[in-house]
Design a protein around this nucleic acid. Structure first.
Length: 821
RNA sequence: GCGAAAGUGGCGGAACCGGUAGACGCGCCAGCCUUAGGAGCUGGUGGCCCGAGGGCCGUGGGGGUUCGAGUCCCCCCUUUCGCACCA
C-alpha cells in the first residue's frame, strides 16, 4: 500500500534529525557543490516554476550523491529589491515585516518538497550579517578603483516626482499615474565591468555552459571591431566629431552625419535658422523613455537638420549634420557617419529627407569582365547594399577604388590615421554596471561625503551600514532616495577628519546581492569573515549550476565579473564561478505562461497535499524535457501516481516472497539496459526519459507473471532515489538496506555483457519499404540474412516483381533489397 | 528587424551515428473484478482501405541528396523565447 503522507513525514523527520543532507563542510572527501538560483520570496508563496527548477536540480544532486559525491545543496532568499518594495507599498505594509513572513512560508513549502537542502547554510540577502559583506564587496571594488561615480540618466516621472525603475515604465508612461516619463541626470555609482570585458568574453570559450546561454552572453557583450573616425566641423571650429564604424571602407560614401539628439556638440553645430526646430526635436526625444524608445516598432525615421556641416576626411567635402533619435547616445560615440548606400537605416533616412546616396562598395560579379574597376557603377534600387562578402570591392573611392573591401578598410584607416583622423577601435555594447538605486529596500552603499575629505569609504570595521526601519519608504521627491529623509541616518561624522559628513543615501542594486551569494553559502556559518579560504578551496567553484534562462545575461555576467574582481584582489582562488551551467525550461499551463492575471497558477501545496511530494516531483520532471520545459496538465499526474503505487506493490511483494537472483535472462537484461539508459539520462538531465525507462522496467517485471526477486527490484528502488526520495528510502529499508539510502546505497552499474541478446530482430526492406522483420543470430553474415529474408512470404512477393540489383546489409541493424523490374 | 530554439497521434512527449516512427504517460475503447469507486487488473488504440492475407498514406509545406530521411542540404510557412534602430 502506497501511503505518501505518512511515509514522507517519516523520512523528512529522519533526514532532519540526523542531518542527512548536511555534508561535512571541513572534511568531505568528494565535495560537489550543486547550486540552483535562489528565489525571491514572494508573499504569494512558492511558485510551481520555482519548484520545477529546484526539483530538476535536486534530481541531479541526489544522483551525484548516489554516485559517491558529498553533495552540498544550499538554499537562500534573494529578498531585497523592487518587487518586495512595491508589494509592500501596494498592501500598505513594511517589507521588514513582510519578508520574514514570506521566508517562513517558503521555508515551510520547501521543506515538504523533498529537496535535499542543507538548512544549516542558508543565506538571506536582507540579513545585516549578509549585506554587511555585500557592502564589504563594494568597498573592495572601490579600493581597487572599480567603483566610480558618474552622471547617468534615470527614468523620471514629473507628476509623481520620482525616479522609476525600467520595470515601472509601461509604454513610455508611468505605471502609476500614466504621465509621460522623462529622463534626468543623476550622479550614480558604477562598477567598471567594461574593464573586464575581454576576459568575460574569452572565458566563454572554455566554461561548460548551455550553448544558448553562451550565445546570449556574447551578444550582450556585443563586441564589434571597427575604427574611430574624426570629422572636422566645417568653418573654423576646433571641435571634431568622433564616430565609431565597423565599415571604415565605406567612408567615401558618408554623405551626411547624424547625432543623437542629446549629443553635446548639437548646440555648437546648430545654426540660428534651425535652432527652434532642433530644440523642439530634442525636447520631444527627451520625453520618451530610453527603454521604450528602443522598443518602438514604428521605424519611420524622424530627424532635423542642424544647419551645421562637417568635413568628410576622405573626400574633403562638407556634409550636413542632422540629429535623429535612431542614433543612440549610449552606443559608440553617439554620432554616426551616415553611409546610405550601405546601411539600411541611413538609406531610409536619406530617402526620407532627400539626402545624397552614393554606393561605394559593389559585389564581385559587377566587376566581371571589366578592365577598369574604378569605372563601375552600382544601381541600388530600393535597398542599401549591406551584404558582406570576401570578394566585394570598393568603387567611387578615389585611389582605393577596385580594392577588396577588407583591404580597403585597413588602408583607409592607416591613411587617415597618419593625419590623426582615425584609429582602429573595438566597441562593446556592454556598459558599466550602474548599481545605485534611489530606493529604500536594499543595502545602503557604504560611502560618506565629507566637505573636507570628499568621498570617504565607510571603514570596514563600521560595517554593516544598517538599513534603518523607515516608516515612510516611498521613493522621494526630486530623485532623492528615501534614506535622504532620515536625518539620523545620513548625518554622520567623518571617520577621517571628524568633521560633519553625509552618508550616501542610495542603496545598491539587487543584482549585487545575488552576484556573490554562492560564495557565501559554504562560509555561511562564519560571522567574522565573508568567504572562508579553506571552505572556499574545498567547495568552490560551483560544480553544477542550474537555473532559468531569464538570468542568462545579467545575473550570470555580474556574478562572473564580481568573482573575477575578487580573484584579482586575492579573495578567491578562481576567476570563473560556475564550471557548468545548465538552463532549465519554462513550465507553462494551457499553452501559456502561468500568471495571476490568467488565473492558471498552480499552487504546489494543493498537489503535495493530494498526491504527495514524490508523485508531484515525478510528474514535474516527467511532463517534458527538463531543459525545454513543458505543459502542466492536471490529468497527467495520475500516471506517476500509479507508477509509484505499483512500484510499492511490486517491492512489497518481493520482500514477502524473499526470492533472490535473476531467474530470467530476459528480465536480467532489461535491468541492465535500464541501468544504462537511466544513467545516461541522468547525466544529460533527461529526466523525462529516465522516468519512462524505469516505468518500462516495472512493466517488464510485472509482465513476467511472477513476483520479482529482491535482486531484480533493488536497482529500480535505488534509481528511484533521486526521483521519489521518500518512497525509495522506505522501500530500501524494507529491502533490508541500511538507512539512509543516500548514504548507504550506491548507484547501480550495468554489465555490458548482459546487455546483448543472442538473437536480433532486424527489419527487411524492399526498395526502402519495410516488408518483414527476421530473427537472426547476433553478428550473422549477409548470406544468413539473405536466406532468412527470402524465406519470408511478403519479401518473396515483393522481390518477385523484379530482380535484386543490390543488397545493403548492416549487420544486426537492417537489410535492404533493391529490386528493379 | 537580429539572435536562439522548435513544429511528430485526440493530448504531453520518445526515436543513438541517416536504418522497424509514435517508447513512456494521459485520454479513449473492450473485457475482468467489485462491500459501484474519480479504485484495481487484462487487452487494444496514427489515419484510410480491405477479400482479413494484407495494401496505401503518414513527422508544418515544397524541392533535393541517399539503397534508405523525423534525422542531412536548399527554399517557404508557423510558433515560442530573448534582444530590440548597436552604426
Amino acid at each position: 500500500m502506497y501511503d505518501p503522507t505518512t511515509l514522507e513525514e517519516k523520512w523528512q523527520a529522519y533526514w532532519a534529525a540526523r542531518g542527512i543532507n548536511e555534508p561535512d563542510m571541513d572534511g568531505a572527501p568528494n565535495p560537489f557543490f550543486n547550486l540552483m538560483m535562489f528565489p525571491y520570496p514572494s508573499a504569494e508563496g512558492l511558485h510551481v516554476g520555482n519548484l520545477y527548477a529546484f526539483t530538476g536540480a535536486d534530481f541531479h544532486a541526489r544522483y551525484q550523491r548516489l554516485r559517491g559525491q558529498n553533495v552540498f545543496e544550499p538554499i537562500g532568499f534573494d529578498a531585497f529589491g523592487i518587487h518586495s518594495e512595491n508589494y509592500a507599498l501596494k498592501v500598505n505594509a513594511h517589507p521588514m515585516d513582510l519578508i520574514p513572513r514570506s521566508i517562513a512560508n517558503f521555508t515551510r513549502q520547501l521543506k515538504r518538497s523533498g529537496i535535499m537542502f542543507d538548512w544549516s547554510h542558508t543565506v538571506d540577502t536582507t540579513d545585516p550579517d549578509y549585506y554587511r559583506w555585500t557592502q564589504w564587496i563594494f568597498l573592495q571594488l572601490y579600493d581597487a578603483g572599480l567603483a566610480v561615480k558618474k552622471e547617468a540618466p534615470v527614468n523620471w516621472c514629473p507628476s509623481c516626482k520620482t525616479v522609476l525603475a525600467n520595470e515601472q515604465v509601461e509604454g513610455g508612461k508611468c505605471e502609476r499615474c500614466g504621465t509621460e516619463v522623462g529622463q534626468r541626470l543623476l550622479s550614480q555609482w558604477f562598477f567598471r565591468i567594461t574593464e573586464y570585458v575581454e576576459r568575460l568574453l574569452a572565458n566563454l570559450d572554455w566554461i561548460d555552459w548551455s550553448p544558448s546561454t553562451l550565445t546570449a552572453q556574447r551578444n550582450w557583450i556585443g563586441r564589434s571591431e571597427g575604427a574611430l573616425l574624426r570629422f572636422l566641423l566645417a568653418g573654423d571650429r576646433d571641435d571634431k566629431l568622433e564616430v565609431f564604424t565597423t565599415r571604415p571602407d565605406t567612408i567615401f560614401g558618408a554623405t551626411f552625419m547624424v547625432l543623437a539628439p542629446e549629443h553635446p556638440l548639437v548646440d555648437e553645430l546648430t545654426s540660428e535658422e534651425q535652432r527652434a526646430e532642433v530644440e523642439a526635436y530634442r525636447s520631444a526625444a527627451a520625453a520618451i523613455d530610453l527603454v521604450e524608445r528602443r522598443k518602438a516598432d514604428d521605424r519611420t525615421k524622424t530627424g532635423v537638420f542642424t544647419g551645421g556641416y562637417a568635413v568628410n576626411p576622405a573626400t574633403g567635402e562638407n556634409i550636413p549634420v542632422w540629429i535623429a533619435d535612431y542614433v543612440l547616445m549610449e552606443y559608440g560615440t553617439g554620432a554616426i557617419m551616415a553611409v546610405p548606400g550601405h546601411d539600411q537605416r541611413d538609406f531610409e533616412f536619406a530617402r526620407q529627407f532627400g539626402l545624397r546616396i552614393l554606393p561605394v562598395v559593389a559585389p564581385a560579379d559587377v566587376f566581371a569582365g571589366l578592365s577598369d574597376p574604378s569605372s563601375v557603377e552600382l544601381d541600388l534600387g530600393d535597398e542599401a547594399f549591406v551584404e558582406h562578402s570576401d570578394d566585394e570591392r570598393l568603387i567611387n573611392s578615389s585611389e582605393f577604388s577596385g580594392l577588396l573591401a577588407s583591404e580597403g578598410s585597413e588602408r583607409i584607416v592607416e591613411w587617415l590615421g597618419e593625419q590623426g583622423l582615425a584609429e582602429p577601435k573595438v566597441n562593446y555594447r556592454l556598459h558599466d554596471w550602474c548599481i545605485s538605486r534611489q530606493r529604500y529596500w536594499g543595502p545602503p552603499i557604504p560611502i560618506l561625503y565629507c566637505d573636507a575629505c570628499g568621498t570617504v569609504p565607510v571603514p570596514e570595521e563600521d560595517l554593516p551600514v544598517v538599513l534603518p526601519h523607515l516608516e515612510n519608504f516611498k521613493p522621494g521627491d526630486d530623485g532623492i532616495a528615501p534614506l535622504a529623509k532620515d536625518e539620523s541616518f545620513y548625518r554622520v561624522t567623518c571617520p577621517s577628519c571628524g568633521g560633519a559628513a553625509r552618508r550616501e543615501t542610495d542603496v545598491s542594486d539587487t543584482f549585487l546581492d545575488s552576484s556573490w551569494y554562492f560564495l557565501r553559502y559554504p562560509s555561511a556559518d562564519f560571522d567574522d569573515r565573508p568567504i572562508d579560504p579553506a571552505r572556499t578551496e574545498r567547495w568552490l567553484p560551483v560544480d553544477m549550476y542550474i537555473g532559468g534562462e531569464e538570468h542568462a545575461v545579467l545575473h550570470l555576467l555580474y556574478s562572473r565579473f564580481i568573482t573575477m574582481a575578487l580573484h584579482d584582489l586575492g579573495h578567491v582562488p578562481f576567476e570563473e564561478p560556475y564550471l557548468r551551467f545548465r538552463k532549465h525550461g519554462l513550465i507553462i499551463r494551457d499553452g501559456a505562461k502561468m500568471s495571476k492575471t490568467k488565473g492558471n497558477v498552480v499552487n504546489p501545496d494543493e498537489y503535495i497535499d493530494r498526491f504527495g511530494a514524490d508523485t508531484f516531483r515525478t510528474y514535474l520532471m516527467f511532463l517534458g524535457p527538463y531543459q525545454e520545459g513543458g505543459d502542466f496538465r492536471d490529468s497527467g499526474i495520475v500516471g506517476p501516481q500509479r507508477f509509484l503505487s505499483r512500484v510499492t506493490d511490486a517491492a512489497e511483494a518481493a520482500v514477502v516472497e524473499g526470492a533472490v537472483g535473476f531467474p530470467d535472462a530476459a528480465v536480467e537484461r532489461a535491468v541492465h539496459q535500464t541501468i544504462r539508459q537511466v544513467t545516461d539520462d541522468f547525466a544529460s538531465l533527461s529526466f523525462n526519459t529516465a522516468i519512462a525507462a524505469l516505468m518500462e522496467l516495472l512493466n517488464t517485471l510485472r509482465a513476467s507473471g511472477r513476483v520479482p526477486t529482491l535482486d531484480e527490484i533493488r536497482p529500480l528502488v535505488i534509481m528511484l532515489g533521486p526521483i521519489a526520495p521518500h518512497l525509495a528510502e522506505e522501500l530500501w529499508e524494507q529491502l533490508g538496506g541500511e538507512s539512509s539510502l543516500f548514504d548507504h546505497a550506491s548507484w547501480p552499474t550495468f554489465d555490458p555483457e548482459k546487455l546483448a541478446t543472442d538473437t536480433v530482430e532486424i527489419p527487411v526492406q524492399v526498395n526502402g519499404k519495410l516488408r518483414a522483420t527476421i530473427s537472426l543470430e547476433r553478428g550473422a553474415g549477409e548470406d544468413a540474412a539473405m536466406s532468412a529474408a527470402l524465406a519470408d512470404e511478403s519479401v518473396q512477393r515483393h522481390v518477385a516483381e523484379g530482380s535484386i540489383r543490390k543488397t545493403i546489409y548492416v549487420p544486426d541493424r537492417m537489410l535492404n533489397l533493391v529490386v528493379t523490374s
